[in-house]
Each structure stands twice: as C-alpha cells, then as structure tokens.
Amino acid sequence: MPEPLPAEETISLLLVDDHPVVVEGIKGLLRPETGLQVVAQAYSGIEALSILADQHPTIQVAVLDLNMPEMSGIELARVIRSRWPHIRVLILSMFHDHATVAEMLEAGGSGYVLKTANRAELSEAIRQVALGRSYFSHDVAATLLQNMHIPAALEGSRPAELTGREREILQLIAQEYSNQAIAEALFISERTVETHRRNLFTKTNSKSVVGLIQYALRHKLIS
C-alpha cells in the first residue's frame, strides 16, 4: 500500500527507454531537482526486469517509454505491478490516444506524461505518483474525458451524489489500492468495501475502473 513520503526522503527512479539519448536527456532534465534520484536505467523491458530483480527494494518509481522492442511499456508496467506492487509506474510517451491510455490504466500505471513536458511537470508527475496519486498531462486527461461514453440522459447532469465514505474509497481506487488494502486503511471489512465499490459503479454508470476514473476526472472527484 503506498504511503505518503516524508518531505526529506529522496524518490529513487528507474528510467526505461530504448533510446540512450532519451534516457540521458531525462537524467539531465531531472538533475537539478532536489529529492529525485535516478538510481538505475535500462534500454529494454528485459533489462529493466533484471535490474528490478536486484534493486527493487530501492526503486520507488519506474518511468517507462511505451514503444520498445521485445516488450512494450504497457507489458512492462503489467509485470512490474504484478511482481513489485510497491513500485509506481509513470508512462512517458509522445502518444496519447484513448486506447493506449486506457490500456495503461488497466495495466496498473499511475500516471501518463507526454515527452513534450517540461522539467517542472515531469518532476511534479513523479512526486505525485510516488505519493500514491495519479497524474495525467493536460492533453492526456482531455483525451480520456473526450472519449468517455456519456449516455444522452446524463449529458449536462450533475455528478453523482457520493457519500463521504464513497469519496474516500473512490480516491483509494484511483490510487490502485486493492479491496483488502482499502479495508485496512479505513478500518472496515472487505465486504463493506465491495458494497461501496458496487455502489460507486452503479451511481456513476461505470463499467470498469478506467470508466470510473474517467468519470471522477470529469467531475473533479479525485485529486
């Protein structure tokens, strides 16, 4: 379960991109930032997994390119989140079509930043993701919202009326907490979490976690 990081703690990063010049560029971009440290770099998904097998206790955020040979960033994100759930995944890409962003969310990615981002935005994305939150570049968030299916009857409607507990659980779902982790964080039973989760899907007319997050973004229900 992700925990807030103390302000003085350094966030350790793994950079993965099949272009060495891109990796060096990101390292140079982040070098002036205090509290961020690139501790490892890889040029393929296979190399990244090998590094993580040795260094996973020290790595907190993996910054991944999408398009890599042998193993895509989406595939790598899925493996990382399965094997090392404490490591947060941030995608850095030139592309932000809806299908790709949705697939990234389903794979367990916590954020999606475009390669056109400046140092301030990339740094902020890393820090937010390390805190267990989600981060999307403006254009990426717009892509999600523009492509979400909104029934005609709901166009222009007010957001669903959620209870305080439902809002808490929605925030934790967006942070990728499992039902068990949510139950432990809020001192309630897993059965109660499941009930609230079903209510959230019903109230927002969502069919998947991606749809739920899209709804929450559209109505500014999550930070």
Rank of each mutant, 00 (worst) to 15 (best):
M1Y: 02
P2L: 11
E3L: 15
P4N: 05
P4C: 01
P4T: 05
P6L: 07
A7G: 07
E8D: 13
E9A: 15
E9R: 07
I11Y: 07
I11N: 05
S12T: 13
L13S: 02
L14G: 01
L15Y: 05
D17M: 06
V21W: 02
V22R: 01
V22N: 02
V23E: 04
E24H: 12
G25K: 00
I26T: 11
G28C: 07
L29S: 08
P32E: 10
E33F: 04
G35W: 09
Q37C: 11
G45Y: 11
S50I: 08
H56K: 11
T58F: 13
T58L: 13
T58Y: 14
I59P: 00
I59E: 06
Q60D: 08
Q60N: 05
Q60G: 09
Q60C: 00
V61M: 06
V61R: 00
A62P: 01
L64M: 08
L66T: 09
P69D: 04
P69Q: 02
E70G: 02
S72W: 06
I74Y: 07
E75S: 12
E75A: 14
R78G: 06
I80L: 04
R81Q: 07
R81N: 08
S82M: 10
S82G: 09
W84A: 02
V89T: 01
L90D: 02
I91A: 01
S93K: 04
F95M: 12
F95N: 13
V101C: 11
V101D: 08
L114H: 02
K115H: 03
A117I: 05
A117N: 10
A125N: 05
I126E: 06
Q128D: 05
R133E: 13
S134R: 15
F136P: 01
H138I: 12
D139S: 13
D139R: 13
V140M: 02
A141M: 12
A141L: 10
A142Q: 12
T143E: 08
L144A: 09
N147D: 11
A153Q: 15
G156M: 08
S157E: 13
S157T: 14
R158C: 08
P159L: 09
P159V: 08
A160D: 10
R165Y: 02
E166S: 02
R167Y: 10
E168P: 00
L170T: 00
L172W: 01
I173S: 01
I173C: 07
I173K: 09
Q175T: 01
Y177L: 09
S178Q: 03
N179V: 08
Q180M: 11
A181H: 14
E184I: 09
E184H: 12
L186A: 12
E190T: 15
E190A: 15
E190D: 15
V193I: 14
V193F: 03
E194S: 15
R197Q: 14
N199G: 14
L200I: 03
N205D: 11
S206G: 06
S206M: 14
I213W: 00
Y215H: 09
A216L: 05
A216V: 03
A216I: 07
R218C: 07
K220Q: 15
I222F: 09
